[in-house]
Amino acid sequence: MDAPLIEIKGISYEYEATKALDNISMKVEKGDFLAILGPNGSGKSTLLKIMLGLIKPSKGSIKLFGVDAKNFKHREWIGYVSQKSNSFNAGFPATVEEVVAGGLAKKAGLFRRLPKTVHEDVLEALKAVGMDQLLDRSISELSGGQQQRVFIARALVAKPKMLILDEPTVGIDHQNVQAFYDMLASLNRDKGITMVMVTHDVDTVTDRVSHVACLNQTIHFHGFKEQFQTLSDEERASWYGHSVRKIHHTGGGH
């Protein structure tokens, strides 16, 4: 049996004497689509950053693909999609093709040029997110939803085994959010890409994922989505910190 893609044991993280994460243990298996839910300040993004090796935990251990994270060399196996508003320079003078090709930088290696097939690779990744028609467009001209699809394509272009997404729907209007999650679900289903996603969209996303983890400094629930869906509003509220009601969205499409 394959090793878990992520295996976290007893992770804690303190920032300026405040405990952001407390004794987290969890596994992400190959093919999982895990949604990490939690209120603001619950440590969701911190947990993702620890998974990515961007910050070191105060305590505990993390293995990626069965290897201690410190010794893990195949970072190109993990695609990362950040919160668009956090890191992207909105006025950057680059085309969609240039941005997506940037996703091949790590895979190509230092001192090496991008592969000769870069154009085909980029086109394939853009097709997977339905954006191949916008190859030559400037990234700054696109809508929030389109930009986020481009960033998914950038994460996909190196053909990762797992995608880690940090609130990828921030800045996307509601109608496009549903279509966006459908696209992620199809990448998980059809291409077998394992997904780990932090999100606030509790009920939109739980229809599409396989697993749910509820985080508020520590893990309050981690299991199949079917188990999560049987939780009462009161049970959810007990860890979320305030009432969480099931909301049924109407409409959708792109």
Binding site: N86, S87, F92, G102, A105, A108, L110
Partner: peptide
């Protein structure tokens, strides 16, 4: 010439550059 692709990624999105394992 040696670091063009890394400089591009770093300039566009430094958090992504760090997360993708670029130095």
């Amino acid at each position: 010439a040696l670091f063009f692709k890394e400089l591009f990624v770093l300039s566009f999105d430094d958090e992504y550059a760090k997360a993708s394992g670029l130095p």
